[in-house]
């Protein structure tokens, strides 16, 4: 009985986005906020900056997570899906800690700015390419990216994903630096 072992899908609805800051799809222009594991330490800055940009531009915020194929498989396995199943990445995104953090921290500033958010997820090993494709798909007015990363040994490095998004996005890109 595989069915009974599977927990309820942790989709974006299960992230607990309050109804007054939940975007109704297709009703707003969007700024895109990609959030990955490397952003764990800057979620607060990302959230407040995204709310401010969206507030001033009168758009909604779309939080985006791109799963690499390996991460997608990891999370799917942890949720006891069968390895042949391909659940929608939206159903897994609630398991990504920095996404949960950003969503939680967005609520208050979004309310203050009078705007909204939703959550999207994609799968692909070309993370920058997926971010650009998502920006294209939603005709994003702005993409916000964390401009720095820490390497495994802790070195501060300029993220190659951020660089490639900046060069290829169909709209202006805002770097969010964390020091």
């Amino acid at each position: 009985m595989t069915e009974s072992k599977r927990p309820a899908a942790a989709g974006s609805d299960d992230l607990g986005v309050a109804s007054d800051v939940r975007a109704r799809r297709d009703r707003h222009e969007t700024v895109l906020l990609p959030v990955g594991y490397g952003d764990a330490e800057r979620v607060e800055t990302l959230a407040s900056t995204a709310a401010e940009v969206a507030g001033m531009m009168e758009t909604t915020v779309r939080v985006l997570h791109v799963f690499t194929e390996d991460r997608y498989a990891d999370v799917r396995d942890r949720l006891n899906y069968h390895e042949d199943e391909r659940p929608e990445p939206d159903e897994l995104v609630g398991r990504v800690a920095p996404v949960r953090d950003v969503v939680g921290r967005l609520e208050e500033p979004l309310r203050a700015w009078g705007t909204t958010m939703d959550v999207d997820a994609r799968v692909g090993d070309d993370v920058a390419g997926e971010i650009v494709a998502a920006a294209d798909a939603v005709d994003a007015k702005r993409v916000l990216v964390g401009g720095r990363r820490r390497s495994p040994t802790g070195k501060v490095v300029f993220g190659s994903t951020a660089q490639r998004v900046a060069l290829n996005a169909p709209c202006p890109v805002t770097f969010v630096r964390d020091d």
């Binding site: 390497s151 040994t153 802790g154 070195k155 501060v156 490095v157």
Partner: peptide, 20 residues
């Protein structure tokens, strides 16, 4: 120091060393 390492504060160094 280069690329932010080693961290410049006691607390930063303690946290960094706990990882590496």
């Amino acid at each position: 120091r280069a690329q932010g390492l080693p961290p410049s504060t006691d607390a930063g160094r303690t946290e960094w060393l706990s990882v590496v």
